[in-house]
Design a protein around this nucleic acid. Sequence first.
DNA 1: GCCGTTTTCGGCCCGACTGTTTTCAGTCG
Length: 577
Amino acid sequence: MDNKEYAKILEEIATLTRVVGDSFFRVRAFSRAARLIEDLSQPVDELVDARRLDLIDGIGESIEEELVMIRMTGSSPRHQELLDRIGRDVMELWEIPGLGIKRIQLLYQEYGIASVAKLKEAILANKLLNAPHFGPSIQDKLLDEISGWERGRGRRYPLPEAKALAESLRLQILENPDVKRAEIGGSIRRGKETIGDIDILVTSSHAAAVSSWFRGLPEVIEVIQEGDTRSSVRVTNEIQCDLRILDEHLFGAGLHYFTGSKDHHIQMRLRSKKLGLKISEKGVTLYDDKSETPIGPMDTEEEVFAAVGMQYVPPEIRMGKDEIRLGEAHSIPKLVERSDLTCDPHVFTDLSLGRQAPGEFFEACLAAGYSTVVLAEKGTLSGKGVRPGDFENYLARVRKLDESFAELKVVAGLDVEILENGLLDFDLRLLAKLDWVVARMGKEVSDEAEENTQRVMWGIETGLVSCLAHPTGRHLGVDSGYPLYFDEVLACARDFGTALEMSGNPQELDLNAVLARKAREAGVDLVVASGAGHVMGLSQVEYALQQARRAWLEPKDILNTLPFREMVGRTRVLLNR
DNA sequence: GCCGTTTTCGGCCCGACTGTTTTCAGTCG
Ligand SMILES: Nc1nc2c(ncn2[C@H]2C[C@H](O)[C@@H](COP(=O)(O)OP(=O)(O)OP(=O)(O)O)O2)c(=O)[nH]1
Ligand SMILES: [Mg+2]
Ligand SMILES: [Mg+2]
């Protein structure tokens, strides 16, 4: 069974338990365990079999037992029993903003309301007039939220889409002269693949004025919350945007707070509390200090971590897990950053299917600090792109470009599909002449993991593939890719010296952090690439880098932190022999 | 339910906004 499915069952147990009114902390334990499992690179199946689940902080005897049971029988008795007793539809109620533990328990226990549809009926039939905590304005709000819910309002957005909108809002906010700084926080800054809302931290000495000005921006379609130091609104296409405004000297504390995650804060605050230090967006203070004066400067996040004796923790790994312990011991490794990259190993230009000429990319590559760029142009036997007949001409053109631009090494590569018979969609002898060959699953993908796995492995086994692109075939926010036995592909890639690509292509973001971690643990090399077909797209590599950091990858784990010659030497073991 | 450089029992993050509420509970970030 998939880790996602284990996580789902635990989360549902948490949600259902809340309805019947169990201890808040027991519920939170189940919910946290669900999140822990979702971010695990090792399959729960394996952990159960090896009896190693209890090594995970936050999973104890009961939850381990639960997982073992699921592993053995395919389902959890506790989960089944809860579902049978109160039904699946109650869980919808948690998706309605304004409904929390008290109101849902009241609805269920006093009124037998166990679905959104029943709640709507009850409100419209005035059945809740005497219910405590259900005054008239709450009921109006609930009706509105229910209609939003029916239109699918609460959905999560792909990171790139949300980030683009967030950036444009941030720039507008910065135009207000009262605003000192504005920074995107929340799950966008942590690089989560999907985003629930946009969180922006602002500093200003006129918080209330900024807050109310923000609520009046043209793209604001609805105000959800209006305070002097925070506002919450809905902007175009229904996405929610939260603004928190603090004094300038609290920028570091505020950004740390608004970046999260929630679990990171709970764990950080718990530990600091034992030292007598209170952490909040107001900085690090002493619990008994009524004036809430920070114990040191809080302008930067580094200072916040330092104030509680910790090393700086990069946003992407703030999950409330190992980063707390390691941060305290000052032993968090230096994770990979853009400045570590020597090369963008995957761009394509109008030499094949791209929109811009190769020359237009070069200045931007230099500005990014690269010494090399690989043109991974689409290669094909019969489709659109570079054909075998164009091969010599293509090489000659790239050689000329390379010579004309002394500071940047321009490499002729190709990006080819793996055909149904496992061969590559190009003349194999020609591919052997290239320093860098990207391959990817071609068309007519099977529903059977067996067949897809075999096909990808045959492709790799040609010995010609430097790098496997778009390994899972997933499209972010659309589909989860083709069925595949990923472990087998990893073993094959390791044996043949094929790297796996982490692409910043916003439609793909593939590999993601969990699978990248898995690849790393299997001894497979990784590259981080933009996958860009236009100059502006070069910066997309930052999405891939965020996934890499979420996987705790260091420069040494990423092939394109090496000089290009060494990248070539580390890949395609058959050719290098 | 989980956990332990003060604990194997007794805690479990902290603050802002809203209106259910007129001294505070509920929800949310
Ligand atoms: N201390 C504390 N901070 C919180 C809590 N909930 C949220 N925050 C902080 C950390 C979050 O990253 C930040 C933004 O909250 P969000 O609800 O928008 O969550 P986040 O952006 O992490 O994920 P999302 O994709 O929006 O669901 O606010 C909480 O319960 N306690
Ligand atoms: Mg958020
Ligand atoms: Mg938010």
